[in-house]
Design a protein around this nucleic acid. Structure first.
Lengths: 149, 149
DNA sequence: CTAAATAGCTAAGCGCGCTGAAGTATAAAG
DNA sequence: CTTTATACTTCAGCGCGCTTAGCTATTTAG
Protein backbone atom coordinates (compact mmCIF):
# COMPACT_ATOMS: atom_id res chain seq x y z
CA UNK A 1 0.00 0.00 0.00
CA UNK A 2 1.38 3.34 -1.06
CA UNK A 3 1.68 6.06 1.49
CA UNK A 4 -0.33 8.61 -0.42
CA UNK A 5 -3.10 6.13 -1.05
CA UNK A 6 -3.17 5.51 2.66
CA UNK A 7 -3.24 9.21 3.39
CA UNK A 8 -6.11 9.78 1.01
CA UNK A 9 -8.12 7.03 2.66
CA UNK A 10 -7.56 8.63 6.01
CA UNK A 11 -8.58 11.91 4.45
CA UNK A 12 -11.79 10.52 3.10
CA UNK A 13 -12.62 9.01 6.44
CA UNK A 14 -11.99 12.27 8.26
CA UNK A 15 -14.10 14.04 5.68
CA UNK A 16 -16.98 11.70 6.39
CA UNK A 17 -16.65 12.02 10.13
CA UNK A 18 -16.50 15.79 9.97
CA UNK A 19 -19.40 16.06 7.63
CA UNK A 20 -21.74 13.91 9.67
CA UNK A 21 -20.53 14.59 13.17
CA UNK A 22 -20.15 18.31 12.88
CA UNK A 23 -23.57 18.64 11.32
CA UNK A 24 -25.33 16.92 14.15
CA UNK A 25 -23.11 18.48 16.75
CA UNK A 26 -23.72 22.01 15.55
CA UNK A 27 -27.39 21.39 15.13
CA UNK A 28 -27.63 20.22 18.70
CA UNK A 29 -25.61 23.16 19.96
CA UNK A 30 -27.77 25.62 18.08
CA UNK A 31 -30.97 24.07 19.34
CA UNK A 32 -29.69 24.69 22.85
CA UNK A 33 -28.48 28.21 22.19
CA UNK A 34 -24.82 27.28 22.48
CA UNK A 35 -21.98 28.44 20.27
CA UNK A 36 -18.84 26.61 19.29
CA UNK A 37 -16.96 28.56 21.96
CA UNK A 38 -19.47 27.60 24.60
CA UNK A 39 -19.02 23.95 23.83
CA UNK A 40 -15.27 24.43 23.78
CA UNK A 41 -15.38 25.93 27.24
CA UNK A 42 -17.62 23.15 28.53
CA UNK A 43 -15.32 20.54 27.01
CA UNK A 44 -12.27 22.06 28.55
CA UNK A 45 -13.93 22.30 31.93
CA UNK A 46 -15.00 18.69 31.64
CA UNK A 47 -11.53 17.57 30.66
CA UNK A 48 -9.71 19.34 33.47
CA UNK A 49 -12.37 19.11 36.13
CA UNK A 50 -11.86 22.57 37.54
CA UNK A 51 -10.17 25.49 35.88
CA UNK A 52 -9.63 29.23 35.93
CA UNK A 53 -11.12 31.94 33.78
CA UNK A 54 -7.92 32.98 32.03
CA UNK A 55 -7.04 29.35 31.41
CA UNK A 56 -10.26 28.80 29.52
CA UNK A 57 -9.65 31.96 27.56
CA UNK A 58 -6.21 30.75 26.56
CA UNK A 59 -7.64 27.41 25.53
CA UNK A 60 -10.11 29.18 23.25
CA UNK A 61 -7.57 31.69 22.06
CA UNK A 62 -9.33 34.78 23.42
CA UNK A 63 -8.60 37.38 26.09
CA UNK A 64 -9.49 36.76 29.70
CA UNK A 65 -12.04 39.54 29.46
CA UNK A 66 -13.82 37.63 26.71
CA UNK A 67 -13.65 34.44 28.73
CA UNK A 68 -15.05 36.20 31.78
CA UNK A 69 -18.00 37.52 29.81
CA UNK A 70 -18.73 34.19 28.17
CA UNK A 71 -18.55 32.35 31.48
CA UNK A 72 -20.92 34.89 32.95
CA UNK A 73 -23.47 33.76 30.38
CA UNK A 74 -22.80 30.10 31.06
CA UNK A 75 -23.26 30.73 34.78
CA UNK A 76 -26.58 32.44 34.11
CA UNK A 77 -27.65 29.44 32.06
CA UNK A 78 -26.70 27.22 34.98
CA UNK A 79 -24.20 25.25 32.90
CA UNK A 80 -21.14 26.00 35.01
CA UNK A 81 -20.52 26.96 38.61
CA UNK A 82 -18.10 29.78 39.37
CA UNK A 83 -16.71 29.89 42.88
CA UNK A 84 -13.79 31.46 44.63
CA UNK A 85 -10.61 29.42 44.82
CA UNK A 86 -9.86 29.03 48.54
CA UNK A 87 -6.13 28.64 47.85
CA UNK A 88 -5.88 31.84 45.85
CA UNK A 89 -8.68 34.24 46.45
CA UNK A 90 -7.95 36.20 43.28
CA UNK A 91 -8.85 33.16 41.21
CA UNK A 92 -12.13 31.44 40.41
CA UNK A 93 -12.82 27.75 40.01
CA UNK A 94 -15.06 26.89 37.11
CA UNK A 95 -16.80 23.53 37.25
CA UNK A 96 -19.66 21.95 35.33
CA UNK A 97 -23.07 21.82 36.93
CA UNK A 98 -25.24 18.73 36.58
CA UNK A 99 -27.05 20.47 33.77
CA UNK A 100 -23.76 21.31 32.09
CA UNK A 101 -22.69 17.69 32.24
CA UNK A 102 -25.97 16.54 30.81
CA UNK A 103 -25.80 19.00 27.94
CA UNK A 104 -22.25 18.01 27.15
CA UNK A 105 -23.08 14.32 27.15
CA UNK A 106 -26.02 14.91 24.88
CA UNK A 107 -23.85 16.90 22.51
CA UNK A 108 -21.42 13.99 22.41
CA UNK A 109 -24.22 11.57 21.75
CA UNK A 110 -25.50 13.77 18.93
CA UNK A 111 -22.01 13.86 17.48
CA UNK A 112 -21.74 10.13 17.53
CA UNK A 113 -25.25 9.01 16.81
CA UNK A 114 -24.72 8.44 13.11
CA UNK A 115 -21.88 6.06 13.90
CA UNK A 116 -24.27 3.74 15.65
CA UNK A 117 -26.05 3.28 12.36
CA UNK A 118 -22.76 2.41 10.75
CA UNK A 119 -21.81 0.02 13.51
CA UNK A 120 -25.02 -1.90 13.19
CA UNK A 121 -24.29 -2.79 9.59
CA UNK A 122 -20.93 -4.36 10.44
CA UNK A 123 -20.51 -8.11 10.66
CA UNK A 124 -18.56 -9.64 13.53
CA UNK A 125 -15.47 -10.14 11.42
CA UNK A 126 -15.64 -6.58 10.16
CA UNK A 127 -15.88 -5.35 13.71
CA UNK A 128 -12.77 -7.33 14.52
CA UNK A 129 -10.87 -5.70 11.70
CA UNK A 130 -12.06 -2.24 12.62
CA UNK A 131 -11.38 -2.60 16.31
CA UNK A 132 -7.86 -3.83 15.64
CA UNK A 133 -7.25 -0.69 13.64
CA UNK A 134 -8.84 1.52 16.27
CA UNK A 135 -6.60 0.08 18.97
CA UNK A 136 -3.57 1.04 16.95
CA UNK A 137 -4.80 4.52 16.11
CA UNK A 138 -6.04 5.40 19.56
CA UNK A 139 -2.75 4.41 21.10
CA UNK A 140 -0.93 6.69 18.69
CA UNK A 141 -3.28 9.60 19.17
CA UNK A 142 -2.99 9.40 22.92
CA UNK A 143 0.74 9.82 22.79
CA UNK A 144 0.47 12.88 20.58
CA UNK A 145 1.33 16.12 22.29
CA UNK A 146 -0.49 19.08 20.90
CA UNK A 147 1.87 21.89 19.90
CA UNK A 148 1.76 25.00 22.06
CA UNK A 149 -1.01 27.51 21.42
CA UNK B 1 -15.85 -8.13 21.22
CA UNK B 2 -18.82 -6.59 22.96
CA UNK B 3 -20.84 -4.01 21.15
CA UNK B 4 -20.52 -1.36 23.80
CA UNK B 5 -16.77 -1.86 24.00
CA UNK B 6 -16.65 -1.36 20.26
CA UNK B 7 -18.78 1.76 20.49
CA UNK B 8 -16.59 3.22 23.18
CA UNK B 9 -13.51 2.67 21.05
CA UNK B 10 -15.15 4.45 18.17
CA UNK B 11 -16.09 7.19 20.57
CA UNK B 12 -12.57 7.60 21.82
CA UNK B 13 -11.29 7.76 18.29
CA UNK B 14 -13.82 10.38 17.30
CA UNK B 15 -12.93 12.32 20.41
CA UNK B 16 -9.28 12.33 19.37
CA UNK B 17 -10.05 13.33 15.82
CA UNK B 18 -12.31 16.14 16.88
CA UNK B 19 -9.93 17.43 19.47
CA UNK B 20 -6.96 17.60 17.16
CA UNK B 21 -8.61 18.34 13.85
CA UNK B 22 -11.01 20.97 15.04
CA UNK B 23 -8.27 22.76 16.92
CA UNK B 24 -6.08 23.14 13.88
CA UNK B 25 -8.99 23.75 11.60
CA UNK B 26 -10.41 26.56 13.67
CA UNK B 27 -7.01 28.07 14.22
CA UNK B 28 -6.44 28.19 10.49
CA UNK B 29 -9.87 29.65 9.86
CA UNK B 30 -9.34 32.33 12.46
CA UNK B 31 -5.95 33.25 11.11
CA UNK B 32 -7.64 33.88 7.77
CA UNK B 33 -10.58 35.78 9.18
CA UNK B 34 -13.07 33.04 8.40
CA UNK B 35 -15.86 31.76 10.61
CA UNK B 36 -17.30 28.29 10.83
CA UNK B 37 -20.17 29.42 8.60
CA UNK B 38 -17.79 30.76 6.00
CA UNK B 39 -16.01 27.46 5.80
CA UNK B 40 -19.34 25.68 5.70
CA UNK B 41 -20.38 27.76 2.72
CA UNK B 42 -17.09 27.19 0.95
CA UNK B 43 -17.33 23.46 1.58
CA UNK B 44 -20.82 23.27 0.25
CA UNK B 45 -19.88 25.25 -2.83
CA UNK B 46 -16.91 22.98 -3.37
CA UNK B 47 -19.02 19.88 -2.95
CA UNK B 48 -21.73 20.92 -5.37
CA UNK B 49 -19.66 22.91 -7.79
CA UNK B 50 -22.19 25.65 -8.32
CA UNK B 51 -25.08 26.54 -6.11
CA UNK B 52 -27.67 29.15 -5.28
CA UNK B 53 -27.84 31.60 -2.41
CA UNK B 54 -30.89 30.15 -0.72
CA UNK B 55 -29.48 26.65 -1.08
CA UNK B 56 -26.39 27.62 0.87
CA UNK B 57 -28.54 29.26 3.50
CA UNK B 58 -30.56 26.10 3.90
CA UNK B 59 -27.41 24.05 4.18
CA UNK B 60 -26.21 26.29 6.99
CA UNK B 61 -29.62 26.52 8.58
CA UNK B 62 -30.04 30.28 8.17
CA UNK B 63 -32.35 32.57 6.20
CA UNK B 64 -31.57 33.49 2.62
CA UNK B 65 -31.05 37.06 3.76
CA UNK B 66 -28.28 35.89 6.04
CA UNK B 67 -26.78 33.79 3.27
CA UNK B 68 -26.89 36.71 0.88
CA UNK B 69 -25.08 38.95 3.31
CA UNK B 70 -22.45 36.37 4.13
CA UNK B 71 -21.82 35.63 0.47
CA UNK B 72 -21.45 39.33 -0.15
CA UNK B 73 -18.52 39.29 2.25
CA UNK B 74 -17.03 36.22 0.63
CA UNK B 75 -17.32 37.88 -2.75
CA UNK B 76 -15.53 40.96 -1.43
CA UNK B 77 -12.78 38.72 -0.11
CA UNK B 78 -12.52 37.16 -3.55
CA UNK B 79 -13.27 33.69 -2.23
CA UNK B 80 -16.36 33.04 -4.32
CA UNK B 81 -17.72 34.33 -7.58
CA UNK B 82 -21.38 35.33 -7.82
CA UNK B 83 -22.87 35.48 -11.27
CA UNK B 84 -26.29 35.45 -12.80
CA UNK B 85 -27.71 32.08 -13.73
CA UNK B 86 -28.38 32.25 -17.50
CA UNK B 87 -31.14 29.63 -17.23
CA UNK B 88 -33.01 31.48 -14.53
CA UNK B 89 -32.12 35.09 -14.27
CA UNK B 90 -33.60 35.43 -10.80
CA UNK B 91 -30.99 33.07 -9.47
CA UNK B 92 -27.27 33.45 -8.84
CA UNK B 93 -24.57 30.87 -9.33
CA UNK B 94 -22.01 30.74 -6.58
CA UNK B 95 -18.67 29.16 -7.43
CA UNK B 96 -15.29 29.10 -5.74
CA UNK B 97 -12.56 31.35 -7.05
CA UNK B 98 -8.99 30.10 -7.33
CA UNK B 99 -8.29 31.79 -4.05
CA UNK B 100 -11.32 30.15 -2.47
CA UNK B 101 -10.13 26.74 -3.60
CA UNK B 102 -6.68 27.38 -2.24
CA UNK B 103 -7.98 28.50 1.14
CA UNK B 104 -10.25 25.49 1.36
CA UNK B 105 -7.47 23.07 0.52
CA UNK B 106 -5.21 24.65 3.08
CA UNK B 107 -7.95 24.38 5.69
CA UNK B 108 -8.26 20.70 4.87
CA UNK B 109 -4.55 20.23 5.14
CA UNK B 110 -4.53 21.99 8.50
CA UNK B 111 -7.30 19.71 9.63
CA UNK B 112 -5.42 16.63 8.64
CA UNK B 113 -1.85 17.60 9.34
CA UNK B 114 -1.68 15.93 12.72
CA UNK B 115 -2.68 12.64 11.13
CA UNK B 116 0.46 12.67 9.06
CA UNK B 117 2.43 12.52 12.27
CA UNK B 118 0.38 9.54 13.33
CA UNK B 119 0.77 7.83 9.99
CA UNK B 120 4.50 8.10 10.08
CA UNK B 121 4.71 6.09 13.26
CA UNK B 122 2.82 3.13 11.76
CA UNK B 123 4.62 0.02 10.57
CA UNK B 124 3.67 -1.55 7.25
CA UNK B 125 1.63 -4.26 8.89
CA UNK B 126 -0.18 -1.71 11.01
CA UNK B 127 -0.98 0.30 7.93
CA UNK B 128 -2.43 -2.82 6.39
CA UNK B 129 -4.68 -3.36 9.37
CA UNK B 130 -5.79 0.23 9.44
CA UNK B 131 -6.45 0.50 5.73
CA UNK B 132 -8.53 -2.66 5.77
CA UNK B 133 -10.67 -1.07 8.44
CA UNK B 134 -10.88 2.23 6.60
CA UNK B 135 -12.10 0.50 3.47
CA UNK B 136 -14.95 -1.01 5.41
CA UNK B 137 -15.87 2.19 7.20
CA UNK B 138 -15.65 4.45 4.19
CA UNK B 139 -17.91 2.19 2.19
CA UNK B 140 -20.50 2.30 4.95
CA UNK B 141 -20.30 6.03 5.40
CA UNK B 142 -20.73 6.66 1.71
CA UNK B 143 -24.00 4.83 1.65
CA UNK B 144 -25.34 6.80 4.57
CA UNK B 145 -28.06 9.25 3.70
CA UNK B 146 -28.13 12.29 5.91
CA UNK B 147 -31.57 12.88 7.40
CA UNK B 148 -33.40 15.92 6.11
CA UNK B 149 -32.58 19.30 7.63
C1' DC C 1 5.94 47.39 54.46
C1' DT C 2 5.96 48.52 49.76
C1' DA C 3 6.04 47.54 44.83
C1' DA C 4 5.07 44.61 41.24
C1' DA C 5 2.64 40.84 39.38
C1' DT C 6 -1.54 38.19 38.83
C1' DA C 7 -6.70 36.90 38.45
C1' DG C 8 -10.67 38.50 37.37
C1' DC C 9 -14.49 41.97 36.41
C1' DT C 10 -16.58 46.00 34.05
C1' DA C 11 -17.36 49.41 30.46
C1' DA C 12 -17.21 51.34 25.84
C1' DG C 13 -17.03 50.36 21.26
C1' DC C 14 -16.79 47.67 16.97
C1' DG C 15 -18.11 44.27 13.53
C1' DC C 16 -20.51 40.11 12.64
C1' DG C 17 -24.46 37.15 11.92
C1' DC C 18 -28.97 36.74 12.34
C1' DT C 19 -34.03 37.91 11.69
C1' DG C 20 -38.21 39.95 9.70
C1' DA C 21 -40.10 43.12 6.55
C1' DA C 22 -40.06 45.33 2.33
C1' DG C 23 -38.54 45.76 -2.45
C1' DT C 24 -36.93 44.23 -7.29
C1' DA C 25 -36.71 41.20 -10.98
C1' DT C 26 -37.84 37.02 -13.20
C1' DA C 27 -40.49 32.78 -14.02
C1' DA C 28 -44.48 29.86 -13.90
C1' DA C 29 -49.48 29.11 -13.59
C1' DG C 30 -54.17 30.43 -14.47
C1' DC D 1 -52.29 39.10 -19.64
C1' DT D 2 -52.67 38.77 -14.85
C1' DT D 3 -51.63 36.53 -10.71
C1' DT D 4 -48.78 34.03 -7.89
C1' DA D 5 -44.49 32.04 -6.69
C1' DT D 6 -39.53 32.18 -6.57
C1' DA D 7 -34.63 34.05 -6.03
C1' DC D 8 -32.24 37.37 -4.30
C1' DT D 9 -31.12 41.97 -2.11
C1' DT D 10 -31.52 45.75 1.14
C1' DC D 11 -32.53 47.79 5.49
C1' DA D 12 -33.30 48.37 10.45
C1' DG D 13 -32.54 46.39 14.57
C1' DC D 14 -30.85 43.15 18.01
C1' DG D 15 -27.58 40.35 20.63
C1' DC D 16 -23.20 38.16 20.70
C1' DG D 17 -18.23 37.89 20.99
C1' DC D 18 -14.33 40.19 20.81
C1' DT D 19 -10.77 43.89 22.13
C1' DT D 20 -8.65 47.55 24.83
C1' DA D 21 -8.46 50.20 28.85
C1' DG D 22 -9.16 50.76 33.43
C1' DC D 23 -10.49 48.98 37.91
C1' DT D 24 -10.40 46.00 42.43
C1' DA D 25 -8.63 42.44 45.16
C1' DT D 26 -5.09 39.36 46.31
C1' DT D 27 -0.58 37.35 46.19
C1' DT D 28 4.34 37.46 45.69
C1' DA D 29 8.92 39.62 45.57
C1' DG D 30 12.14 42.96 47.25
Amino acid sequence: MQDDAFASMLGEWIEGIMHHSMRRFLRYARANGLSMSHLGALFHTHRFGSCGVTEIGEHLGVSSAAASQMLERLVKQDLVLRSEDPDDRRAKRIVLTKKGQRILEEALRARQSWLNDVTQTLSDSEKKTVSAALKILIARVNQLTEPAD
